[in-house]
Design a protein around this nucleic acid. Structure first.
Lengths: 243, 243
DNA sequence: CGAGGGGTTGACGCCGATCAAAGCTGGTGG
DNA sequence: CCACCAGCTTTGATCGGCGTCAACCCCTCG
């Protein structure tokens, strides 16, 4: 089990203040993209804006809370923890994704734990606010459905990538995902911890380490700065196909 | 690659006729459960009712069609086919589930192939019909969202079950799923082909066969009639946990 | 400075993929 | 009605990949 699930050392959450959706400069990316500015005028329940430090817990599985979150910046992992303490990462989500949507569907608690991978910046939206907005702006239904569909597609992609191929191929696929979805403007992405990568693709930490080391030796993976890497996409793609 | 994806031998589809939703005796289970009878009175596009033989293709991935399907009876597999021809089963769906929902979200084609596992009985619903009903009956948004959420939960469950444990544990988990979701009133479920089970959990056909044979020898699995089995649930659960 | 956590590397053994061959079953045609 | 065949399941033998255990290194933090 990972440290972050037990310690309280890195769980500092910083409250930024009430979100001003009408002035939000990335709202077109978010859950509320389809709504007009006017929609936010008389909300009773505020939408708050938080910063989460790396490894801090956004919510835990099963806790009964009435909030949905929309990610403004950073990467969040959704974690399933088995009863024996082992855990698996079910999804990685980034800017524009919404998490905790299951509470909109009557779930009596979140279905996973949500943990910040790096510095995460998000809006915390009460369910009652969603309900109120939905009734006035049916387009919101479409946004929520779209989010669910996107996450379903991600999950399916995960399923296909997970069960197929050797350990080397799976690591290659994971790196391709990181490069595709989480690279910055310099095409560099943050390398996950070995433990996290193992929890994503379901292999041993040591095997992950060996594969990463091999990719570095073969110059398929390059380090740019601390924890940031770029990769040779076509070489990795070739690996996932062969044999 | 499985035979059913190549041959045309078992692709007979039988048209039953226009569905009479107002008289449908299982509508409470279906996508339209929340709608009043009156909602179906003046639909321009008809909802049709089909029977699909085992192994017949309901739709193929990528085909651009504007229909959503709701399963009245039987089991459907959603199949992802890789470019090298290998394939994996991403989801198993039964009575009450809706498939092809991705076309509601602007997808330019279905994301998987949908293939009948046994005799399947389904309603074929034009997208335009959904749109029309949605505009008059916003509760339908909730039904669609609920379907997506359910399938997302299923996919997550799949991910957790797939990547974890030995071959024996995965087969045990699969049998538990079959028993839980697809057992009839006698608590018996239809055994899938070895190839299908292998495509679900991502192991070789021979290994599946060995595990199933071992379960039979240990009296954890019992055959009731042709292709129907019952299992000792607690024994299987014990297997998935140990070690 | 020591302790502790994560990453790296090596050695070993087992699980499961692969190849091969032999039952089983249902379907087809004589 | 039986012979035959194709496809599926079963079982065996072999081999490689990867999980496991262990040692060591590096870095951070107290």
């Amino acid at each position: 089990m990972n440290k972050e699930l037990k310690t309280t050392a890195c769980t500092n959450v910083e409250w930024i203040g009430r979100a001003h959706c009408d002035k939000c400069y990335i709202r077109r990316l978010m859950l509320f993209s389809e709504l007009p500015d006017s929609a936010f005028e008389q909300l009773l329940q505020p939408i708050n804006h938080f910063l989460h430090a790396p490894c801090s817990v956004i919510y835990e599985a099963g806790t009964r809370k009435d909030f949905v979150y929309s990610i403004r910046r950073g990467m969040v992992k959704l974690v399933h923890i088995a009863q024996d303490g082992s855990y698996r990462i079910v999804r990685l989500l980034g800017q524009g994704a919404a998490i905790g949507l299951e509470v909109l569907d009557g779930a009596d608690g979140y279905h996973h734990a949500a943990i910040a991978v790096n510095q995460v910046d998000l809006c915390k939206i009460p369910v009652s606010t969603i309900r109120r907005l939905e009734s006035k702006h049916p387009k919101l239904y479409g946004s929520v459905g779209g989010q669910l569909q996107e996450q379903l597609d991600l999950a399916d992609q995960w399923i296909v990538a997970l069960g197929a191929g050797t350990a080397k191929q799976r690591v290659a696929k994971l790196l391709l995902v990181l490069d595709q979805f989480f690279a910055d403007k310099n095409d560099a992405f943050i390398m996950l911890s070995g433990e996290d990568m193992a929890a994503i693709i379901g292999i041993a930490v040591e095997t992950v380490s060996r594969m990463i080391a091999e990719f570095k030796r073969q110059k398929i993976l390059h380090i740019t700065s601390d924890k940031r890497y770029t990769c040779n996409v076509s070489a990795l793609q070739a690996l996932t196909l062969q044999h």
